[in-house]
């Protein structure tokens, strides 16, 4: 199987108050296409920073990041935003929907930034909402939806542009266990359709739903194991 994500000795450090703060130490990681991977670790371990770099929201200080055969190291801000647009769907703990837009409009956003005509945006957004079971609530605004429903809208937004990589940061962190289960069921279905999933979590129960668990501690990989069903 070809490697979809390849990290080579990736490091990230910040300068804070004149002090060098090393967040990630020489992380090397390969993720094959279609894998469902969990990254676990306590808060402060660097897992969120790792997700930001994988999601092209931040850039590494050192090391190489290859996504789908393309070396992203040193790409411009414009090129990185194109990668985000075409290849990556984000799911956040706090959903990150725009409160002033309804479900269809929120889901349409990635298509709008791809310059897709409005009528097609609407069709595809409605199809994505149908996929997550929220078609009849498509004209609701986020505040009119439950947490689980909001997260499903966010999933529809991650799916709508057919991004091959879905990055989820504590996707069930703000949900009750029942809604959380529904979301994880949906992840499993979507993964079965061939999308690569990378879920950041500190919850072992969430991690246990994936195929592989990578544990991070103080910016280094301390464990990398397959999940046996």
């Amino acid at each position: 199987m070809d490697q979809f994500i390849e990290l080579e000795r990736l490091s990230k450090s910040y300068r804070m108050a004149g002090e060098e703060l090393q967040i990630l130490h020489q992380i090397s990681l390969s993720v094959p296409s279609g894998q469902y991977l969990s990254v676990i670790g306590p808060s402060g371990s660097g897992k969120s920073t790792l997700m930001h770099i994988l999601g092209c929201l931040d850039v590494p200080s050192q090391g190489r990041y290859v996504l789908d055969g393309r070396d992203l190291t040193g790409l411009s801000e414009a090129a990185l935003s194109q990668v985000r647009r075409q290849s990556i769907g984000f799911i956040f703990q706090s959903f990150n929907l725009l409160p002033s837009l309804n479900a269809v409009e929120n889901v349409s956003l990635p298509l709008m930034y791809q310059g897709i005509p409005v009528t097609q945006q609407k069709e595809r957004a409605e199809a994505a909402l149908e996929r997550v079971g929220l078609r009849e609530r498509r004209h609701h605004r986020p505040h009119q939806l439950s947490g689980g429903q909001q997260q499903r809208v966010a999933i529809a937004r991650a799916l709508v542009a057919d991004a091959p990589l879905i990055l989820a940061d504590e996707p069930t962190g703000n949900l009750d266990s029942h809604s959380g289960e529904e979301i994880l069921d949906l992840f499993a279905e979507l993964n079965a359709e061939g999308r690569t999933f990378l879920v950041i979590t500190h919850d072992p129960a969430v991690a246990s739903r994936s195929q592989r668990i990578v544990a991070i501690h103080d910016g280094t990989v301390v464990e990398d194991r397959k999940v046996t069903a």
């Binding site: 929201l57 414009a78 194109q82 984000f90 956003l109």
Partner: peptide
Amino acid sequence: TREIGIRKAVGASRGA
């Protein structure tokens, strides 16, 4: 600011 972050995360370029 957060809205800008969300828009950028879903692919908005600097120009957009």
